[in-house]
Nucleic acid binder design. Structure first.
Lengths: 372, 372
DNA sequence: ATAGTAATTGAAAGCGTTTACATATTCGAT
DNA sequence: ATCGAATATGTAAACGCTTTCAATTACTAT
């Protein structure tokens, strides 16, 4: 399409070939294969009759550009269906507007909930989140972090405070702040709670009811500053009353519901006077497994056995009986972590430690021991 | 470290500064604020005594570079802790090695499972995945897709085949392939199953047992090609036998466990001879809610009421009684979707439709109706 | 009107890769 | 040794944006 010559608002006419300049490498509106090329800032600039710098400003700092100009740019951008190339922006600004989060597992509802609210909050702030799971393995986690770092994430959310030492070094080197979640720390920025205290309280509650033989079942405690302290809390509560938690009542299982079923068999296999009268579980999934196996074997919960879970998963309230559990506000953890990380990335280092309070929610799986 | 002169395997000596070349623009190892700058390809090139192009090749197409050179580059890269800047690479190659996926909700275990295996597969292929949830809302989904497209994702995984029409146009424009999941289509590439057939079979199973009054409860069916066909399947099965599914036995609820509880009340509120004798649920969560409410009201499942769920969530097998449900291999969907998308992105358009077969897993919540 | 100041805009230099093209090197066959 | 083909490497131009700095334009108060 050849236009009549006339006043041209842009920097130079472009619909006809300018013989002064060598032929541009590519035809500006279509690819070598004839496909329409996506519009770039330059195209918007030309259509709006401004410079590319102004386009950038109109888009990023609208207040720095005169209203009339801004509108012209916006109109041109809309007309062309212009979409900013975030790789170019990231390269230029050295920030990706992307954050990474690594959870131990997607199989644990509480992490999914936290991830979800973390993501929602980040999204509202204009960030995308790259998520990954470590499967409770430090090496896998490190690998994922390396991947995320290469991807240029601006921040990182991790669960717990035990990680590959190289992780902190690498993050530091890339100047990527880390927010730790689900456990507390006095060295790192974190949003979490005192895992030991949570089960300590639950154990005391059971002890107050008259229970003497408690059991505790958690998933892996290796490199895990949530599960390990939870077990500790139970030990501690008993020790304070001069009781001792029998080693056979202290179980580490692989996580998940079926693991809970196995745990039941191990715990309740011995002679009756040695069996625990109450079990504190590291997750509601484990508790559910235990309840399921108990039901199958005709063991009455809570009469013959009390059970306390952890996390208050969605199914917990509707089990029969409803599961007594330690509720953790995962949404709050996700959201607060996001907010804290946002703060850190903004170089504001005000946020330090956000302490969440777990709550023992009393439902139907706890009763005093049978023979007082 | 100065080596004695002798045979040098590389192209040229590199441990001393070459005075022939002009001094680099910036001090190469530190920033204006004195902070150590992260090494870039140029630094590696200098240390290895090769050009930046060779560094790139050594890293991306090692076979195109002589072994000795390659090793020198690798060594230099390792020594400097060089990490490739993916924004720059994305800008240069016009591909981000990132894919996006949008699920309706993280609250539905089946989507999380699919997402997880999708991610694992993509990760193994060197892709990162950006995930988002639409909360079953087309506008939200469109917005997220726009965000992902701006982010330059190379591919997209979507659940179902009903989306904002603009979505396809935008994706097409950006030349981003889409893989549809959890439902079948004859127009789009997809990995899914026949939702209608799944419940059709389940309904027939109940009908064969002698049930005459079936009910169906699903989450929202608006713009939803999974829930709606599931309801249809039940209608269809009954119609084939000259039966009619009463409108009051056809319920749409908000998803989740509590929604299931509400459904129970509505369904079982009427006089006994009008109540359904079996309920087919759109998800296991709904089924769980129904079972919970039934248990609370002393309605015996399966004697007084049969229940069939959908998805075979992790908790379903351990409920009491264990939930009869339609199992869908979400891992397979995630994995196959990833593989198919990988194919599409590689411009190989061989993969068309991958059909997954749902399976009715018989457990404890189904029995013949009480009075035959 | 007009000088001085503040607010806008534009030109151009990056950001760190990849890659087409040109050049240099290697190697096998004579 | 020597030539040519094949292979390896280097040079430099993108990729599409942001941002500094300078130049221009728009105000404000004489």
């Amino acid at each position: 399409m050849v236009k009549p010559s006339g006043p041209v608002t842009g920097t130079q006419a472009l619909s006809t070939i300018n013989p002064d300049h060598p032929l541009p490498r590519k035809n500006r509106s279509s690819n070598s294969d004839g496909r329409t090329r996506l519009p770039v800032a330059q195209d918007v600039a030309e259509l709006a009759g401004v410079s590319i710098a102004t386009v950038s400003r109109a888009l990023n700092e609208p207040e720095k550009v005169r209203p009339a100009t801004r509108e012209a740019v916006m109109k041109a951008a809309a007309e062309l269906g212009f979409v900013l190339n975030s790789a170019a922006r990231a390269l230029s600004t050295r920030r990706s507007s992307t954050v990474g989060v690594i959870v131990p597992s997607y199989g644990n509802e509480v992490f999914v909930r936290a991830l979800s609210s973390f993501q929602r909050t980040m999204r509202a702030a204009g960030y995308q989140v790259l998520a990954a799971s470590s499967e409770y393995d430090l090496a896998t986690e490190m690998q994922e972090v390396a991947f995320l770092l290469q991807r240029g994430v601006d921040g990182l959310m991790l669960v717990g405070g035990i990680h590959d030492p190289a992780l902190y070094a690498r993050a530091e080197r890339s100047q990527v702040p880390i927010i730790q979640s689900f456990s507390l720390s006095d060295r790192e920025y974190c949003v979490g709670f005192d895992n030991r205290e949570a089960t300590f309280r639950a154990a005391n509650y059971l002890l107050d009811l008259g229970h003497k033989r408690l059991a505790v079942v958690t998933g892996t405690r290796e490199n895990n500053d949530r599960a390990a302290p939870r077990a500790e809390g139970v030990h501690l509560a008993m020790a304070e009353r001069g009781l001792k938690l029998s080693p056979v009542h202290d179980l580490i299982v692989s996580s998940g519901i079926v693991a809970g079923r196995d745990a039941f068999s191990q715990l309740m296999g011995g002679p009756e006077e040695q069996r625990p009268t109450a079990i504190i579980c590291g997750t509601d999934e484990i508790a559910l497994g235990i309840m399921s196996e108990a039901s199958e074997r005709g063991i009455d919960i809570p009469r013959a056995l009390s059970v306390i879970g952890f996390n208050d998963s969605s199914f917990s309230a509707v089990l029969s009986p409803p599961l007594t559990t330690i509720r953790v506000d995962a949404d709050e953890i996700g959201k607060s972590s996001a907010l804290a990380l946002l703060n850190l990335m903004g170089a504001r280092t005000t946020v330090q430690v956000t302490r969440i309070t777990p709550e023992l929610v009393l439902r139907g799986t706890v009763a005093p021991p049978e023979k007082l």
